[in-house]
Amino acid sequence: MSASNWSLLHPSTFVLKGVPGLHDAHIWISIPFCSIYILTLLGNCLLLVVIKTEPSLHEPMYLFLCMLAAADLVVATTTIPKALSLFWFGNGDIPINACLAQIFLLHSFSTMESGFILAMAFDRYMAICRPLRHAAVLTPGVIARIGLAIVLRGAVLLWPHPFLLKWLPYCRGNVISHTYCEFMALVKLACVETTAERAYSLVVAFLTGGLDLILIILSYILIFQAVFQLPSKAARLKSLGTCGSHACVILVFYTPAFFSFLTHRFGHVAPHVHILVANMYLLLPPMMNPIIYGVRTKKIQQGVFKIFCIKVDK
């Protein structure tokens, strides 16, 4: 193959085009993107500081929440600044290595987010269904090992993605109709058989997000069984109240995630709708998680007030 043909089929740079059909509105679309990103940075950083400085929050649920906040920050920062550069300055060029790095960081840390949400579900299961063993099982050492296992799972399973994409010939061009590099977006530009790449992506998605969701649902079935066996209504409401924030996080994370995943592979929706939903999957959970826990958790509220030296009447 000549050098010119090689460079055509293996471009050194891809071009992000943003939201299809809404290029004239990019500057307006950037306003909620930028606002949500700022709130994401402030909310998650504040959450990390509050949990670190407040000894009463050094419990398994909040330690897993710290891990989730850190993953949220990586996912948001991996994608949104480049999208804003595209919206504000029309700078859609992204070198192939940067594109592949973005794909790895995006998918691996999204997988870690799912794992941390599962770990939080396990904590709720132990606290409600096995309260006498909760402290004995979820020791600091066990929490650290669970966190490490989740990080390694995301890194190891998603590590092949960049290598699967690196040497594909992209005879359909180097223009990506998206605001960030995404695995399936690049696969669709290739002009060779990509069954193996697609199959691997589907298997990884099931072994991570799909399996996590099944286990989360199973844990909540067991939680509900235990809660509704409690003798009093007050006890039932108190137990369910401890799960409320986590249930909201589950809905906020998995609903747009699975919609985006399924429509990208099997569905037929307008391209701009798919791209906007895919971005909501990245934008909303990192912003909403600290808000949900901040609003619903009194200890976190008190920690925030303490940081800003705000006195609150008890």
Rank of each mutant, 00 (worst) to 15 (best):
L215Q: 04
V192E: 14
V269M: 12
A226T: 12
S260M: 05
V203Q: 06
Q225G: 07
Y254R: 01
V203S: 09
H274L: 10
I221N: 09
S260H: 00
I250D: 00
H272F: 06
K238S: 15
F224M: 12
G241L: 15
V252S: 03
G209C: 07
S201T: 12
V273R: 04
F259P: 01
L240Y: 02
S232L: 14
I214T: 12
L240M: 14
A270Q: 11
R198S: 11
F206L: 10
V277P: 10
E193H: 13
A199E: 14
F224R: 14
P256K: 00
I250C: 03
G241W: 05
L202R: 11
V203D: 09
V192P: 04
F259S: 02
T255S: 02
I216T: 00
Y200L: 12
A235T: 09
L251P: 00
E193G: 11
L213Q: 03
F224S: 05
L207V: 11
R236I: 04
A247Q: 07
F259D: 02
I217V: 14
S260Y: 01
G210L: 03
T242C: 11
C243R: 03
G241T: 10
I217G: 03
I250K: 00
S201A: 13
Y200W: 09
T195Q: 08
C248Q: 09
K188T: 08
L237R: 14
F224I: 06
F261A: 12
A270F: 08
R265H: 09
V187T: 05
L202A: 14
G267P: 05
V192Q: 11
V187D: 05
C243W: 02
S239H: 14
F258N: 00
T263Q: 04
H246I: 13
C191N: 14
H274C: 03
